[in-house]
């Protein structure tokens, strides 16, 4: 087990290095640089700014410095947010994205499992059709549409009741998170519903279910003890990447609901060519994704005793 984890960690480091390098190269190939502004600056000012940010050195040298600093976990100072360290930006804003992401994921998994199980039980009957219709809608409509509809919904609700039931935007309390988390988790919920449905159907026709039925086990117990537990495995598999996708993909939701998460910095940094923030957020998210996938693989062993990682791998 230890061996396996170490091996995976090592390959994870290579992945992160690759992500960092690819991003670095792409970033420097884009025309313009973080210092270009709509008003011109004289040569002296520019030279001094270049010295401050180390842009006066050859690109390869800059890359070396970047790698060295990255190894020490230091991503430098933002170009656009003067005086703010990229590490601080990540430290202050990632927890917000993470909380929102976890909320979204809770809603998505709970919904996905419940709706997925329901569609499988009522296969081809009306609950199945209705739920699957909404699943298709949730998968195909982009999140900014849901975000806007969600916000408008809150607004109308508040207007209709005459009190501020839910905040239209902002951050701070649980009530601020509710609708954004739902919107953010919607497509994952739809995806999990479909996954849960097919995996439930597969399990239902398995031998051990038939055996259980033949033994006279009550249907509810079969469902809970055998079907659900076995069908849930694929859902766990996609959970890792889903966590990463949800915590990184919240840009639109963060924008519409004025949530101070990291997603905003992630996207704006690219538009503003804020080199240090681009590198910091990309590498951070890359590492996060790698870690989540690894965690899920380890978790597997606990849920399904047939998968014992160390013995097979080592």
């Amino acid at each position: 087990m230890i061996n396996y984890i170490l091996k995976r960690l090592a390959s994870g480091l290579v992945t992160i290095w690759f992500i960092a390098t690819a991003t670095f190269v792409a970033m420097h190939m884009v025309p313009g640089d973080p210092l270009s502004a709509d008003k011109a600056m004289n040569a002296e000012v520019r030279k001094n700014l270049e010295i401050r940010y180390g842009l006066d050195k050859p690109v390869l040298h800059q890359y070396g410095i970047f790698l060295r600093n990255m190894a020490q976990g230091d991503f430098g100072i933002s170009y656009t947010q003067k005086n703010r360290r990229v590490n601080d930006i990540i430290r202050e804003h990632f927890p917000i994205s993470a909380v929102l992401g976890v909320m979204a994921l809770l809603i998505a998994t709970a919904g996905g499992i419940v709706w997925g199980a329901l569609t499988a039980i009522y296969r081809d009957r009306w609950p199945d059709v209705v739920i699957m219709f909404f699943v298709v809608v949730a998968v195909s409509v982009p999140s900014f549409v849901f975000a806007m509809i969600g916000q408008l919904g809150i607004l109308k609700l508040n207007e209709w009741t005459g009190v501020s039931l839910l905040p239209v935007a902002g951050w701070g309390t649980l009530s601020h998170m509710l609708v954004p988390a739902l919107v953010l988790g919607l497509s994952t919920m739809a995806y999990l519903t479909r996954l849960m449905r097919s995996s439930m159907l597969e399990v239902t026709s398995a031998d051990y279910i038939r055996t259980a039925r033949a033994k006279g086990v009550p249907p509810l117990r079969i469902f809970y003890k055998h079907q659900l537990r076995n069908a849930i495995l694929p859902v766990i598999t996609v959970l890792g990447p889903s966590i990463a996708a949800i915590t990184t993909g919240g840009f639109v939701v963060e924008l519409v609901f004025a949530i101070p998460g990291l997603g905003r910095y992630f996207v704006q940094a690219v538009q503003q060519l804020d080199y240090t923030v681009i590198m910091g957020t990309t590498v951070f998210y890359g590492a996060f994704l790698v870690l989540m996938v690894l965690l899920v693989d380890i978790l597997y062993g606990f849920i399904d005793p047939r998968i014992r990682l160390g013995k097979v791998g080592a």
Binding site: L152, E159, V168, A169, L255, V256, A258
Partner: peptide, 14 residues
């Protein structure tokens, strides 16, 4: 703090 003008108008409406 948001760049979304729609969100800002909704906040004004609310």
């Amino acid at each position: 703090i948001t760049e979304d003008t729609n969100a800002r108008l909704n906040l004004y409406r609310d």
